[in-house]
Simulated scan of single mutants.
Amino acid sequence: MSDITANVPVAPLPIPAGAFKAYLFDLDGTLADSMPLHYKAWMQAVADFGGTFPEDVFYELGGVTIVKTVEILNERFGSHMPPEETAHHKEQLYYAMLPELKPIASVVAHVHAMHGKIPMGIVSGSPRASIAQTLERIGLGGEFDIIVGAEDYTHGKPDPEPFLTAAKKLNIAPADCLVFEDADAGIASAIAAGMQYVRVPRGSISS
């Protein structure tokens, strides 16, 4: 497996050897340099509902669905934020920041290189509406064969269900899928699904 942790140039990230039949991409922090924007939105949202969200916990929970994140914060910090309402508020704040969004060039290069050659999918903890807006903003709105969002599975990352759902939709064996991920929860999900992965380092170069 390829666990890349060093800074990388604006070139495709190295991938493990293998004749992969499908590429599966996380979105936030992997294809889109959106994690700083998501954190800004989260900080405002939780403050508006009397909660707290330390930055280290934000990155720890990368890949976890939005509603589940609010539930975890309530449990961990003793807050009482309404999960659905807080999640909706956070997403609206994020949408307002989309003009600031940039793609991560070293990962997007793989999308351009393999488009039309093998099936590709998005596997994200975000809602489909958020995924669609992010993809459009970074110029990848029509590049993927499938999109798996928070509405499409019961158990989110680090459970394997999100990536297994994508493999099933593509009719590709899990072992033949390569996952691109930046978050520990997402990588744990890929491993549990029996898939190889490329770790996208935080701070990868955007364009």
Rank of each mutant, 00 (worst) to 15 (best):
I146V: 15
M195R: 03
H88C: 00
M114S: 10
N7D: 15
H38Y: 01
A192H: 07
H88L: 13
V8F: 12
Q133S: 12
G139N: 08
Y23P: 02
V10R: 14
S2P: 11
Y153Q: 09
E136L: 12
P99A: 05
A32V: 10
R128H: 15
P83S: 12
F20T: 08
E181I: 04
P158E: 10
V46C: 03
M43R: 15
T154W: 07
P119F: 00
D28F: 08
S207R: 12
D28E: 15
F53E: 02
Y94K: 10
L37Q: 08
M35G: 03
A22Y: 01
T69C: 04
A47Q: 12
M35F: 09
A188Y: 02
P119Q: 00
V67T: 12
L61D: 02
H88A: 13
G149E: 11
S79C: 11
V179Y: 05
D3Y: 13
E84G: 08
R76E: 07
A41F: 01
Y94I: 03
L24F: 06
P103G: 08
S189H: 10
V64L: 13
P16E: 04
F25W: 02
I4Y: 14
H110K: 09
W42A: 11
L13Y: 06
T5K: 15
S207A: 12
E55L: 14
G121N: 03
K90R: 13
A185H: 14
A32R: 08
M1T: 03
L140C: 06
V148Y: 00
S106E: 04
Y197S: 04
E143M: 14
G186Y: 03
A96T: 09
G78L: 03
P12Y: 03
F20R: 07
E91H: 04
I172A: 07
V107S: 08
H80C: 06
V8Q: 14
F53V: 04
T69S: 09
P103Q: 06
L31V: 11
S79R: 11
A183R: 04
F58R: 00
I118N: 11
F144A: 13
P9H: 12
A32K: 07
T86H: 05
P174H: 05
K21L: 06
M35A: 15
V46K: 07
H155S: 14
L98H: 06
A113W: 00
Y153A: 05
G194A: 04
G78F: 04
R76H: 08
V108H: 05
M195D: 07
D56S: 14
D56V: 05
N7G: 12
G78S: 02
A109H: 10
I122N: 08
P127Q: 14
H155W: 00
A47E: 10
G62V: 03
G125K: 06
A132W: 06
L170I: 09
L31M: 07
P16A: 05
V46H: 05
I147V: 15
K68L: 02
F25A: 07
G116A: 08
D3M: 12
S2N: 13
K117C: 00
K40L: 13
F77E: 03
S124Y: 02
K68F: 10
A17D: 15
P54L: 04
Y197A: 02
I104V: 13
L13S: 05
K117M: 07
